[in-house]
Amino acid sequence: MSVISYALKRNPLIASLTDTNDLDKVLDSDCNIIILIQSDIGTLKEIVDRIRETDKLIFVHLDLTKGLKRDASGVKFLSEFVGVDGIITTHTNLIQVAKQYNLLTIQRVFILDTASIKQGIKSINSSKPDAVEILPGVVVPHIQNYLKSLSDQTIIAAGLIHSEDEIQHILQNGAQGVSSSSLGLWNKE
Score class of each variant (00 low, 15 high):
Ser2Gln: 08
Val3Phe: 03
Val3Ser: 06
Ile4Gln: 12
Ile4Leu: 15
Ser5Thr: 08
Tyr6Glu: 15
Leu8Arg: 05
Lys9Ser: 13
Lys9Ile: 01
Asn11Thr: 04
Asn11Leu: 06
Pro12Ile: 01
Pro12Val: 01
Leu13Asp: 09
Ile14Phe: 02
Leu17Asn: 02
Asp19Arg: 03
Asn21Met: 03
Asn21Gly: 01
Asp22Glu: 11
Leu23Val: 09
Asp24Cys: 03
Val26Trp: 07
Val26Thr: 15
Leu27Lys: 07
Asp28Thr: 06
Asp28Asn: 15
Gln38Thr: 09
Gly42Glu: 13
Leu44Phe: 03
Glu46Thr: 13
Val48Thr: 10
Asp49Thr: 06
Arg50Thr: 06
Ile51His: 03
Arg52Gln: 13
Glu53His: 09
Asp55Val: 08
Asp55Ser: 15
Leu57Val: 08
Phe59His: 03
Val60Leu: 00
His61Trp: 07
Leu64Gly: 00
Thr65Pro: 07
Lys69Leu: 11
Lys69Pro: 01
Arg70Gln: 15
Arg70Trp: 00
Arg70Ile: 11
Asp71Gly: 06
Gly74Cys: 09
Lys76Arg: 12
Phe77Trp: 04
Phe77Gly: 01
Ser79Lys: 00
Glu80Val: 04
Glu80Pro: 00
Val82Ala: 04
Val82Gly: 05
Gly86Gln: 09
Gly86Val: 11
Ile87Ala: 02
Ile87Thr: 08
His91Phe: 12
Ile95Lys: 01
Ala98Asp: 09
Ala98Glu: 06
Gln100Gly: 12
Gln100Leu: 15
Asn102Glu: 13
Thr105Glu: 07
Thr105Gln: 02
Thr105Asn: 04
Ile106Phe: 04
Ile106Ser: 03
Gln107Gly: 10
Phe110Pro: 06
Leu112Thr: 12
Thr114Met: 04
Ser116Gln: 11
Gly120Pro: 12
Lys122Ser: 15
Lys122Gln: 14
Ile124Met: 01
Ile124Thr: 05
Asn125Gln: 15
Asp130Arg: 00
Asp130Trp: 03
Ala131Asp: 14
Ala131Thr: 13
Ile134Trp: 02
Leu135Trp: 10
Leu135Asn: 11
Leu135Gly: 05
Pro136Asp: 14
Val140Glu: 09
Ile143Phe: 01
Gln144His: 02
Asn145Cys: 00
Leu147Lys: 07
Ser149Thr: 12
Ser151His: 13
Ser151Thr: 07
Asp152Pro: 03
Asp152Val: 02
Gln153Ser: 15
Thr154Tyr: 04
Ile156Gln: 02
Ala157Ser: 14
Ala158Trp: 02
Ala158Cys: 05
Ala158Val: 06
Gly159Tyr: 13
Leu160Met: 13
Leu160Asn: 12
Ile161Asn: 11
His162Ser: 10
His162Tyr: 14
Glu164Ala: 09
Glu164Leu: 12
Asp165Ala: 15
Glu166Ala: 09
Glu166Thr: 02
His169Phe: 08
Leu171Glu: 03
Gln172Met: 05
Asn173Tyr: 00
Gly174His: 06
Ala175Gln: 10
Gln176Ser: 14
Gly177Asn: 14
Val178Asp: 11
Ser180Val: 14
Gly184Ile: 01
Leu185Glu: 04
Trp186Leu: 08
Trp186Gly: 07
Lys188Glu: 03
Lys188Val: 03
Glu189Phe: 15
